[in-house]
Amino acid sequence: MSANEYIQQFSPHLFWDVRKEELDFDAHAQYVIKRVLEYGLLNDWNLIKTYYGLPRIVKIVKELRDLEPRALAYISAISKTPKEQFRCYTWKQLNPQLWNF
């Protein structure tokens, strides 16, 4: 299946702010994966897992500077990778917020 066919199968709310036709799955992999992890449905997760593969997703997510705690817990559990290996987890620990509401 081509990247354009994958894009058409994603939930409409995921990429509402960009033109889907101009979205390059390989060049914008970090953007696509982060968006799906934070706002996607299970079907969206299955699409990126099929396209990228779990090892590549984990490698990309490890480099993210910020990620919602729920998404981090999910990718950590699915890949059996400790949270401490993700940059978003260690960066958050090093830079605590003064007021966390």
Rank of each mutant, 00 (worst) to 15 (best):
E5Q: 12
K80L: 13
H13R: 10
L98I: 06
P96Q: 10
W45V: 09
L42P: 02
I75D: 03
W99N: 11
I33M: 14
F25L: 15
L41F: 05
Q85F: 09
V61I: 13
A77S: 07
S11P: 02
S2K: 01
E21C: 08
P96C: 09
T81C: 09
H28S: 13
M1H: 04
P82N: 09
S79T: 02
F101L: 13
R65D: 15
A27F: 07
E21M: 09
F25M: 15
R65S: 15
K83Q: 11
L54R: 02
S79L: 08
T90D: 15
K59N: 09
E68I: 05
G40N: 01
M1G: 14
V18I: 12
L98M: 10
Y74F: 12
T50C: 15
P82W: 08
S11F: 00
E84D: 14
G53S: 10
R19T: 06
V32Y: 09
Q97S: 10
A71M: 02
L54S: 06
D24T: 02
D24R: 04
A3V: 00
Q97E: 15
A71Y: 00
L42T: 02
W99A: 13
A73M: 04
L72W: 00
S79D: 04
E38D: 12
L47V: 03
F86S: 02
Y51S: 12
A29L: 01
N43M: 11
F10C: 00
L72V: 03
E63C: 05
I57V: 12
P96W: 05
Y52P: 05
N46W: 11
Q9N: 13
R35Y: 00
R56L: 15
F25E: 07
R65P: 12
I75R: 00
V36E: 04
L72Q: 06
A71W: 00
E68T: 05
P69C: 11
E21Y: 04
A71G: 02
G40I: 03
N43D: 07
K92R: 11
R87N: 11
V32Q: 06
F10G: 00
Q85Y: 03
P69F: 04
H28E: 15
E68A: 15
I48K: 08
D66H: 12
D66E: 15
Q9C: 14
L54G: 01
K49E: 14
R65C: 13
C88W: 00
D24N: 15
W99R: 12
E63I: 03
L47Q: 04
L67H: 00
I48H: 05
E21Q: 10
F15T: 01
W16L: 14
L54W: 06
R35F: 07
L37V: 06
L72Y: 00
A29E: 14
S76E: 10
D24V: 06
I57M: 13
L37S: 04
N46I: 03
Y52I: 06
L14C: 03
I7K: 05
W91T: 02
